[in-house]
Design a protein around this nucleic acid. Structure first.
Length: 424
RNA sequence: GGCAGGUUGCCCGAGUGGCCAAAGGGAGCGGACUGUAAAUCCGUCGGCUCAGCCUACGUUGGUUCGAAUCCAACACCUGCCA
């Protein structure tokens, strides 16, 4: 018998809060348990932070339980209250489109089959969208006291600040009802979610108990932050790390994880990968002994890129990373390797006839957002062409600079590399 | 519906007629150090056809030689009252 799923979650640091774990343990041991986690379509793609609950569902599935991934087609129309303030509502069409997109993404992380542990995909719009208001207020609303709802941290903060709309205030009831519906339809008895979801989740636990007289369980997973306490996945220049390869390229995704701080690597390996405790400890030891090898970071990047983008794509981004970050001369790369690397990084094109300067090249490659930023980069000493620093704004590439007659490898700072194709 | 206060750059926040593309902080970005790490220090941080010009301080209009700053209307937010 392998390790108990709850013990695994514990050593991986994946349990932030929970209802009675002993009771849950008993239920997990007696039979396959059905559990769920919900994901709201707040953008056209899931991002790296969503992987924690998603992979947790998979961990349960591998341990012999049945996961339900819930796409929040209805809750996404309302918006979970945040501390920062009221959300802007998105149109129903847009939310529906996003729901479809994230449902496809969600489906990739669990296995579907006819066995008792085969996963299910649900959409809460199925039971929420057409529910009459009176039914909602009588059957769901009656079980909640506003007094308790006002006690929730986010609500308290919002009341102290700019206030909160009735719409967002109601969110908790919708999520609680989701749990009830999934309990009725599929016997779902465990909900996972981020620790910011605790209030919503226990509201569901309470509702199931009151309406069905059944004991439902809850586990929240820690909100992933780096060692500085910053929200995970946000430190790449402001943007999020999206799962959608057209929004965050596999190369950028891989690079993000390669750059993980030493202090975070082990923790991330535990939370984001399926590596064993022993393997992770070995990687941590390696990082402590020979930090410059970045073994833990590389493994983390490899695992996550494979998980999200597949083994083939991972092979390509590793090759591209080696070509561009390697000690070797870019000139020595053979044409096929160079072309392959250029296919992974952002590229732009510029006509030779325009006699582009370094500023034009930086802009064309996309490593800077504007000419002003390009000039700044040059003056700050952060501009490179083919790994050679360019300090003059007026510098222009010559025929001899073109790699294989067409490419210039443009770089901003240490790690923002892109290609510019010079067209004749 | 009434009264009061508010709306500034990615975020927070100063600025009450010219010296304001707008103090300060944070984030971000670049450099040095190193290891494509952290910490630290330094620099930078609207755009462009760049010693000039264009956009920008909720929106629109007005006063003025000149407005983020004054006036009016409108929108939104907060609080108190109804």
């Amino acid at each position: 018998m392998s390790e108990h799923i709850l013990d695994e979650l514990t050593w991986r640091g994946l349990i932030a809060q929970s209802t009675d774990l002993d009771a849950l343990r008993g239920d997990l041991e007696s039979a396959p348990l059905t559990l769920y986690a919900g994901f709201d379509p707040t953008a056209p793609s899931l991002h790296a932070g969503h992987l924690v609950p998603l992979l947790a569902l998979r961990r349960f599935q591998l341990a012999g339980h049945r996961p339900i991934v819930l796409a929040g087609g209805a809750t996404g129309l309302i918006g979970d209250p945040r501390d920062v303030g009221e959300r802007t509502l998105h149109s129903a069409d847009l939310v529906a489109e996003w729901t479809d997109r994230i449902r496809d993404q969600l489906s990739r992380f669990v296995d579907f089959d006819d066995s008792p542990t085969g996963a299910l995909v649900e959409n809460n719009a199925n039971w929420t969208a057409d529910m009459p208001v009176t039914e909602f207020l009588r059957d769901v609303g009656k079980h909640f006291t506003v007094n308790v709802m006002l006690g929730r941290e986010t609500i308290k903060r919002r009341l102290e600040g700019e206030g909160i709309s009735y719409t967002e205030f109601s969110y908790m009831l919708l999520q609680a009802n989701d749990y009830l519906q999934l309990h009725r339809r599929h016997g779902c008895r465990l909900q996972l979610g981020g620790s910011d979801q605790w209030g919503n989740i226990v509201a569901g636990v309470d509702l199931v108990r009151r309406v069905e007289g059944a004991q439902a369980h809850a586990i929240t997973l820690p909100l992933v932050t780096d060692s500085e306490g910053r929200k995970f996945g946000k430190s790449t220049g402001g943007g999020s790390l999206w799962l959608d390869p057209t929004m965050t390229s596999p190369y950028a995704w891989f690079q993000y994880f390669v750059n993980t701080a030493d202090a975070d690597a082990g923790r991330y390996l535990r939370m984001f990968t399926f590596l064993s405790d022993e393997e992770i400890r070995a990687l941590e030891q390696e990082t402590a002994d020979r930090p410059q090898l970045r073994s833990a970071q590389r493994r983390l990047a490899e695992e996550l890129t494979t998980l999200v983008h597949g083994a083939e794509e991972t092979r390509r981004v590793i090759a591209a990373s080696q070509a561009l970050f390697g000690r070797g001369e870019l000139r020595d790369l053979d044409e096929a390797t160079l072309n392959a690397a250029m296919a992974e990084v952002p590229t732009g094109a510029v006509p030779l006839a325009e006699q582009p300067t370094i500023v034009d090249l930086l802009v064309a490659s996309g490593v800077v957002p504007s000419k002003a930023a390009a000039r700044r980069t040059v003056n700050e000493g952060g501009a490179y062409v083919n790994n050679a620093k360019i300090g003059d704004e007026e510098w222009r590439p010559g025929e001899a600079d073109l790699l294989h007659g067409r490419w210039l490898v443009v770089r901003r700072g240490k790690r923002h590399t892109a290609g510019v194709e010079v067209v004749r």
